[in-house]
Design a protein around this nucleic acid. Structure first.
Length: 420
DNA sequence: TCTAGGCTACCGCAACCTAC
DNA sequence: GTAGGTTGCGGTAGCCTAGA
């Protein structure tokens, strides 16, 4: 990366050196606050996210309520900078691409000198500025951290010559666009790998490993066809079902044994009520038919967690994979919409298993473990690549907007000659 | 007495509301 | 205008109680 030929002390400790031809101005000389309240329901309601900046509220998952009356909502125009006062310390700023309205708790700023707003979009969202805004926030030590407009105006903004602001914004649009595309490709790859993983397990536990095997109708709608030599058995003939007797509060930090509660998180405890091979699943809540654990050893479990153990004619691991792949299909049919659904014991006891001979079950489990291990490795690698790309993106933006790197050779040569 | 159905409390988050 | 209280929502977990 190129450097500028000459740097100077910015005079601001937290900024450090800046290119010698750049300026540092208080934000009050760059922006003014606009507070227009129109109450116009025709205008789109906007929100801000860390990832995307300003977006239509309908496009984001916001749990916040919306007031019946829009009288107090603030109007923002295209190219206005909008700040979520309560989240400014987290880099929640954005340049609006819309003419719309925002929450009364947001602040809307309009430029009062000729600047490139996209440059400031990048600058104000850096970790450097997020840290500064956090220090400036009122209400430290309380639940309410807010950056008020006077404290925002009091901050120093870096001001390269206008053509350079444009060049930095163009450079970052180009680079971050490419990085975002790469990240998006990696995310899609992870999604596909997860789908592949599910499909591999599903196929193996309901059709076996031989693609040419002769099939028969299972007689169960959601199960469809199964290999001709497989049997059908109900769960109650394959395992014993129990529930635990503990509550989540019984967990002990750094306890000796695993403690299975209703969520995916495995707590710790110093007691154990079972020692052996078992499969566990949440008995109610959102984890129903989604949260599964396989264990072979000592553990304890919650009063609303089902334990399946003492397997007969079925291998524990096969039971685990089969339940994880198929139980949800059955639970959906009986569940109410409430978040507190409960597995009905009769449904559970009569849940149908397509059952290969024990030897084949072992082969299927070995195949699943070998195949998913490879898929998991690829997923981990892709996740690591996303982390690295995200870090690179953050670093690149930070270095470009603070002048630590120069975005073009021409700028490096001409620096100092540009004008505001 | 035990199990499990169902209601409710609690928590975190984010925006709205209002007293000062 | 600001600070801090309130509200709504989704998720998690505790409590009460009817029925076996």
């Amino acid at each position: 990366m190129l450097k500028y030929p000459e740097y100077k002390d910015s005079g601001v400790e937290w900024i450090g050196d800046i290119p010698s031809h750049w300026s540092a101005w208080r934000l009050k000389y760059i922006f003014d606050e606009v507070d227009i309240r129109k109450g116009d329901k025709q205008l789109p309601l906007l929100g801000i996210t860390k990832a995307k900046g300003i977006v239509l509220r309908g496009e984001i998952e916001s749990r916040a309520s919306v007031s019946d009356s829009y009288e107090k909502y603030k109007v923002c125009n295209t190219n206005d900078i909008v700040m979520n006062k309560m989240q400014a310390w987290n880099g929640i700023f954005g340049i609006s691409q819309y003419h719309g309205i925002v929450s009364p708790d947001y602040a809307v700023f309009k430029k009062i000198i000729d600047i490139n707003v996209r440059y400031f979009h990048y600058l104000l969202r850096t970790d450097l500025y997020a840290s500064l805004f956090r220090l400036k926030c009122r209400g430290m030590g309380t639940a309410f951290l807010r950056l008020n407009s006077p404290d925002f105006f009091d901050c120093i903004g870096l001001l390269p010559p206008l053509p350079e602001q444009q060049a930095i914004a163009d450079f970052l649009d180009d680079k971050t666009g490419k990085i975002d595309m790469l990240i998006s490709t990696k995310r899609r790859q992870i999604e596909l790998l997860k789908e592949q993983r599910t499909a591999v397990i599903n196929q193996a536990v309901t059709r076996g490993l031989d693609p040419d095997v002769e099939l028969k109708d299972s007689g169960i709608e959601w199960l469809g066809q199964i290999p001709k030599h497989w049997g059908i058995k109900r769960l109650k003939f394959l395992t014993t079902i129990n529930t635990g007797d503990k509550d989540t509060v019984n967990n002990i930090e750094n306890g000796e044994y695993p403690f299975f509660v209703r969520s995916q998180t495995i707590e710790r405890i110093n007691s154990y009520t079972y020692d052996g091979e078992a499969v566990l699943t949440a008995g109610d809540g959102v984890g129903v038919a989604k949260v599964f654990h396989y264990i072979n050893g000592k553990f304890d479990y919650h009063q609303r967690v089902y334990k399946f153990s003492d397997f007969k004619d079925i291998v524990g691991k096969f039971f685990f994979h089969y339940m994880k792949a198929n139980l949800y299909k059955e639970v959906i049919k009986i569940s109410a919409k409430s978040t507190v659904d409960s597995l009905r014991m009769p449904m559970l006891q009569n849940f149908v298993f397509a059952l290969p001979p024990i030897e084949e079950q072992n082969c299927i489990c070995a195949y699943i473990e070998e195949t998913t291990q490879e898929i998991d490795k690829t997923i981990t690698k892709a996740q690591k690549q996303i982390e690295l790309l995200t870090e690179y993106r953050t670093g690149l933006i930070s270095e470009a907007v603070t002048g630590k790197i120069c975005v073009s050779e021409q700028l490096a040569v001409n620096s100092g000659k540009g004008e505001m």
